[in-house]
Write a protein that binds this DNA or RNA. Structure first.
Length: 260
DNA sequence: ATGGTTGCTTAGCAA
């Protein structure tokens, strides 16, 4: 691994709609590895020329209208995987991985689930089960692995602006929290919580009902790292500024830094 | 200011 590794994850909610903001973010923050979610388009809508000019290699798993994930890196990306390759449903482009800059990195967009008890909720839990199974089958927790993305689950009360109102609801139900804990049980730790213990830090705010101005948010975007990386994590942040201004994504980017 | 989303695709869905 390199002497310093800066990693970012961001659900951009359409890379086409967010193109200028996203490129400005790349130039301002200069992350080494970037995990993107909700591209909402095929690879042809991704600003490949601009990201290449900014110094990035890219691996894209696109999809028309929905989903879509990408991995960017300052160095070439090897052994790219798209989807779980486990005989389950692969119609949704929600998972991409690659080896770059001395680590194995994955960008994941966990299904939203819509409502507890719905068909989409069952799909979400099954997708999360498959995510854990993927790591059990392909990796060991002593490898340097990053798993970053929009998990659509807030793990604890301190990650929710009004936990009593949200308790049992979608994004904050017990089965979802258990499924996320199971994924982390592989050996992933939350880089943000290494440095920030208190509540009030969120990564997503609903566009509706003045969610952001009222800071009615949830922390559902994470950069998880296995122990060999987590131990070297030296900083983590949520870039709340990116949620401000004209036509932002409903998610803020999350950053983490690792010392080599 | 007594309200109040956005994006994709084109009226309705997803988040």
């Amino acid at each position: 691994m390199h002497s310093m590794l800066r990693v970012a994850t961001w659900n951009v909610n359409s890379v086409k709609a967010r193109k200028e903001r996203f490129l400005a973010f790349l130039h301002r923050q200069r992350p080494d590895i970037v995990c993107l979610q909700e591209l909402k388009g095929l690879e042809e809508i991704f600003p490949l020329a601009e990201t290449k000019a900014a110094g990035y290699h890219a691996a894209i798993h696109g999809q028309r209208t929905y989903n879509g994930v990408a991995l960017l890196s300052r160095e070439p990306i090897a052994q790219v995987v798209k989807g779980f390759d486990d005989a389950g449903d692969e119609t949704a482009a929600r998972f991409i991985g690659g080896t770059t800059m001395g680590v194995r990195a994955y960008s994941a967009y966990i299904p939203n689930g819509q409502a507890v008890g719905s068909d989409k909720f069952a799909y979400k839990l099954e997708w999360m089960r498959r995510l854990r199974a993927y790591f059990d089958a392909r990796h060991r927790p002593n490898e340097k692995i990053l798993l970053a993305g929009d998990f659509n689950v807030a793990p604890e009360d301190r990650d929710v602006y009004d936990p009593e109102a949200w308790r049992g609801q979608i994004l904050f139900s017990e089965p979802e929290k258990a499924a996320l804990a199971k994924i982390c049980g592989f050996g992933f730790q939350d880089t943000f919580r290494k440095f920030h213990e208190e509540g009030g830090h969120y990564s997503w705010w609903d566009y509706r009902q003045l969610g952001f101005p009222k800071n009615r948010g949830l922390r559902i975007d994470f950069i998880f790292a296995t122990a060999p990386l987590w131990e070297r994590c030296s900083a983590a942040s949520i870039e709340r500024e990116e949620r401000k201004g004209t036509l932002p994504s409903d998610h803020a980017p999350v950053l983490a830094e690792f010392d080599g």
